[in-house]
Amino acid sequence: MNNKIKKTFSDRCFNLINTLIMLAIAFIMIYPVYYVIIASISNAEKLVSFKGILFRPLAPTLLAYEQAFKNPMLLRSYANTIFVVVVGTMVSMIFTILGAYVLSRNNARLVKPAMIMVTITMFFSGGMIPFYFAVRDLGLDGSLWALIFPSAINTFNLIIMKTAFMAVPSSLEESANIDGAGHFTILLRIILPVSKSVLAVIALYYAVARWNAWFGAMLFLEERESYPLQLILREILIQNDMSNVSEGVASAELGFISVTIKYAIIVIATVPILCVYPFVQKYFTKGVLIGSVKG
């Protein structure tokens, strides 16, 4: 018996149009990244004079990367950013997991008032000046810890994780309670193992947010030795500060090479975090769907 479904002419037209639209969207999203990579390894003078859509590097060269890594602050800022991302993500995950577990306990005291207070922070805040004074009075001003603890918990991520924890079957917890398990045992051995997808997605959210953050560093850090990578990137792209990445370049060539150096800096600052996505992609859709179930 042939169970193959025959597609009508309208079905084929729909699939064709849908495919073309998806390809166009994919091109619009991918080409800017591709262009930056290709431009970063192109000859600066030829790139500036080139008109049209760039599909291949022009006279390939790594001069832009060589000049970029001459910046003495680049590797230092990389180390600062890695510290903030790794330690900050760990701190955020610990606080978010503990907060989500407490808020997911229906029999805990004051859960509803606490949830209301948490939700309010999504819409209202004290403002930048009180926030700055609070961080300063805590003694975190001028330290990388000022980029970690004040933003340790994101309310949206907390609610997603809380909803995911509530989706864990209560029978598992009841069995653990009968066996004498406490809250930490239930959290570590039951809830977390069955919530790996949500944990991976939330960890990715925190890591990407901390990797891209620059405003907090501009607000709290004064010494350039403590600057994260994104703040150095901001100096080069927005303030056009090429003083540390143009050594040995003639002034006549500086206007050309500065363009490719900017592209190279963007690649250097973007590629590492892009490499994280393939490792958590299999958890992404499942984690978001689990965390989005109304609890």
Score class of each variant (00 low, 15 high):
100 A>W: 07
103 L>P: 09
167 A>E: 14
181 A>G: 08
116 I>K: 10
171 S>V: 15
196 K>C: 02
147 L>I: 01
140 L>Q: 01
105 R>D: 09
121 T>H: 06
148 I>M: 02
211 W>T: 05
162 K>R: 15
194 V>G: 06
174 E>H: 14
208 V>K: 06
224 R>T: 14
129 I>P: 05
173 E>G: 13
217 A>P: 08
99 G>T: 07
148 I>N: 00
121 T>Y: 09
132 Y>T: 00
119 T>M: 13
154 N>T: 11
147 L>R: 02
197 S>K: 02
185 T>K: 14
210 R>A: 07
122 M>C: 09
139 G>P: 01
111 V>Q: 09
167 A>N: 15
175 S>V: 08
173 E>S: 14
172 L>V: 10
140 L>E: 00
163 T>R: 14
170 S>I: 13
103 L>C: 10
145 W>M: 04
202 I>Q: 01
183 H>L: 10
218 M>V: 10
123 F>E: 04
118 V>T: 13
224 R>M: 11
169 P>C: 10
182 G>L: 07
208 V>G: 04
176 A>M: 10
152 A>H: 07
147 L>T: 01
137 D>M: 01
149 F>G: 02
125 S>G: 15
128 M>G: 02
221 L>V: 11
101 Y>R: 08
101 Y>F: 15
110 L>Q: 07
174 E>F: 13
205 Y>G: 03
206 Y>V: 09
179 D>Q: 13
125 S>Y: 04
124 F>T: 10
